[in-house]
Write a protein that binds this DNA or RNA. Structure first.
Length: 649
RNA sequence: GCCCCCGUAGUUCAGGUGGAUAGAACAACGGAUUUCUAAUCCGUGGGUCGCAGGUUCGAGUCCUGCCGGGGGCGCCA
């Protein structure tokens, strides 16, 4: 399992809503039938039994398989084959499956089931909401109980441009947020802006000096300027010096000191600047109007740039999602005092910590440090305050942190401390689920963290530019007839699809290798492949309309008798189940994999089943409808991942 | 030293709660009625699933121990 799971096992996710009687999902229907059959065939066996129905790995064996007989045989004291035979004997699936019998049993006791083609049409109608099931949207039902889900994403820092380090937190966070929203939950995005603390005071002070010196104006300063000032300020406040430390430490005397005079001078000057930055920090924390107004300006510029880059990434991160560390500043003192007075926190070597080493506290050896010896607070303190607010005031039943995997220990500590402190108690009752959706690093093709040749972080704006440029060249090559503005639009969507699909399609906890060449080849398992499949569904519909052969699809019945049609139909029906599983695990790559399967099923259907030139008008109508449905599921899935779509390409 | 994560084809990656012969993509090679968009489809070759034990009808998946890589470990965020 991936690391950084929240809390203890008992606070794990609730099971998803039970299937309804008029389900469109073959797995649910067959599971229910198999369960009944087992109950009839083995009345003596106690306890709930998993019917173990899944899609077949190989289409040649069947559409679905039941693996319950092996375990059941053991419990009932009969051979697995015998158990399978008894299940088959009691199984009533004539309305949805082709006849089952001895021949349906294979190997040690697998039961293979094949859906009747006629049954598929009905399932598709139910899936599409036209079969009478109210509140169904592409198979997704409103949840029995809607939950408030807070998704912590993006996590930019003040006065810094967005770079690859923010890519995954933004893309994955947005996708997770969209998945929960799509399932009908109330989602609140939170951009935990790093806008507080000494480094921020350093850059704020630096900017004030620059403005005073007339080198920049507060109104005209850009984020790029601020980034430079940030680095300069860090350098100018750096008092570390191995040479000076060694000389002082080993008492190497005046001669050595004289030789290293410049270095001593640098350390002294930087020390003064650091002290000044600390004074600026105090002013900022006490809401000094002059300092705060400059700080405010930095915040505004940072957020504006962040929102703009996120928009280019088709990630929904807006100013109102900002929840800066500064917004918790006034709560930290009382929070720590409260924990101290309740005996949850304690003073240790002058600092305040929350111990987590007991088994019932989470069994974490390292305590959670929430106040420094000098009285300062740490980012763990802020995260504690954030969880308290999100659960206690915002009503979150689930808080998901899309933050890189290196923070695993930090979140284990913070989550455990919150449990101890009672911050996970939901006002209406119950406990909130805290989840760290940890992700790995973006690596370059050399296997090391992805950087520019000069060793700088790659700016997201540059990354998107590059993807767009490559996509534009490709679109121009393949569809030069389209207008330039349309090609620009397609290039944006295709480039962003390529970037995001690459990021989302592998297991998030692992590092992945970033390669423009591979990503933007647009061949095989890539984002653009999915867009291409979608475009083809729309192209057929467009052609049908132009030719005047597009029927009113609402009056058309689905049918799926050709193997490729059947495979496509079965793939479509899996959508909601995949979405639920992916959301529950915060694993967008499952949706990616599904959409790739669906796109593949559509491509084979496209290849093997003529639509406009179908043998009969009836078949054409059905295929047009199947095509339309496949397109809607593809578009819905892409939308749910935050991948932009296009009409043609 | 302790803790966490990762190890699957030449390369990049998938492989819910253990299930049949471990799947894609890329790269290589060979095909597809001159097309509803070929950014596609079909086929061929390619694997001691890091190693060794264990659990059981069955292990890439679960347990233990190693090996290799990465990350983290109270006064940074």
């Amino acid at each position: 399992m991936s690391g950084g799971e929240a809390g203890r096992a008992g606070s794990y996710d609730e099971p998803m809503p039970e299937p309804e009687a008029n389900s469109f999902d073959p797995v649910e229907i067959l599971s229910s039938r198999v369960s009944s059959a087992i109950a009839r065939a083995f009345p003596g066996v106690e306890g709930a039994l998993d019917p173990m129905v899944t899609a077949s790995k190989q289409a040649s064996l069947g559409d679905f398989q039941c693996n319950a007989a092996m375990a059941l045989g053991k419990r009932a004291g009969v051979s697995p084959r015998e158990a399978a035979a008894r299940i088959v004997g009691a199984l009533e699936v004539g309305d949805v499956c082709e006849p089952v019998g001895e021949g349906s049993i294979a190997g040690p006791g697998f039961i293979n089931l094949r859906l009747r083609a006629e049954a598929l049409g009905g399932l598709l109608s139910a899936f599409d909401g036209s079969g009478g099931a109210a509140g169904v949207s592409l198979g997704v039902r409103a949840p029995a109980a809607s939950e408030t889900v807070v998704v912590d994403l993006c996590g930019v820092n003040l006065a810094k441009e967005m770079h690859v380090g923010h890519l995954r937190a933004t893309i994955i966070g947005d996708a997770v947020a969209r998945m929960y929203a799509r399932l009908g939950h109330r989602v609140i995005r939170q951009n935990h802006l790093g806008d507080w603390g000494l480094p921020i005071a350093m850059v704020t002070g630096k900017l004030m000096e620059e403005v005073e010196a007339g080198r920049v104006t507060l109104g005209g300063v850009t984020l790029a300027d601020m980034g430079r000032l940030y680095k300069a300020a860090q350098r100018e406040c750096d008092t570390r010096s191995p040479a000076v430390e060694a000389i002082v430490r080993w008492g190497m005397g005046p001669k050595a000191e004289a030789e290293w005079e410049d270095e001593f001078e640098r350390v002294r000057e930087n020390g003064e600047r650091l002290a000044k930055a600390k004074r600026t920090l105090v002013k900022l924390q006490s809401h000094d109007p002059e300092v705060e107004s400059v700080w405010r300006r930095i915040v505004d510029v940072t957020i504006a740039a962040c929102v703009s880059v996120c928009a280019r990434l088709n990630a929904e991160v807006l100013p109102e999602h900002t929840a800066g560390e500064s917004s918790y500043a006034d709560e930290l003192g009382p929070l720590v005092e409260g924990l101290l007075s309740r005996g949850i926190a304690e003073v240790d070597e002058g600092a305040v910590i929350v111990r987590l080493d007991r088994e019932e506290w989470g069994g974490i050896a390292e305590p959670c440090l929430i106040r420094k010896r000098d009285g300062g607070y740490l980012y763990a303190t802020t995260d504690l305050a954030a969880i308290r607010r999100r659960v206690g005031q915002m009503g979150a039943g689930r808080v998901i942190y899309c933050v890189d995997a290196r923070q695993s220990l930090h979140f284990r500590q913070v989550f455990a401390a919150c449990e101890r402190a009672g911050f996970t108690a939901v006002p209406g009752g119950g406990r909130a689920v805290l989840r760290h959706a940890a992700f790995g690093m973006v690596l370059g093709e050399d296997g090391k963290p992805f950087k520019t040749r000069s060793g700088e972080n790659v700016r997201l704006a540059d990354l998107i530019d590059e993807a767009e440029a490559r996509a534009f060249a490709k679109v121009t090559e393949l569809a030069g007839g389209l207008s330039e503005s349309e090609r620009r639009e397609i290039a944006w969507a295709t480039g962003v699809a390529a970037i995001k699909y690459t990021d989302l399609s592998s297991d998030r906890v692992k590092d992945y290798v970033f390669s423009f060449d591979r990503m933007v080849s647009f061949e095989g398992n890539t984002g653009p492949y999915l867009l291409y499949a979608l475009v083809r569904t729309r192209s057929i519909a467009r052609k049908a309309s132009e030719a005047g052969v597009m029927p009113d699809l609402s009056g058309v019945a689905y049918s799926a008798s050709e193997p490729a049609e059947k495979a496509l139909a079965l793939s479509i029906l899996r959508y909601p189940g995949v979405l639920r599983g992916a959301a529950e695990a915060c694993e967008p790559h499952r949706v990616c994999q599904y959409l790739y399967d669906l796109a593949g099923a559509f491509a084979r259907f496209f290849d093997q089943c003529p639509v406009l030139k179908a043998p009969t008008e009836e078949v054409r109508a059905s295929r047009l409808k199947l095509c339309d449905l496949a397109g809607r599921v593809l578009a819905d899935g892409l939308e749910t991942l935050g991948i932009p779509t296009v009409e043609r390409m």
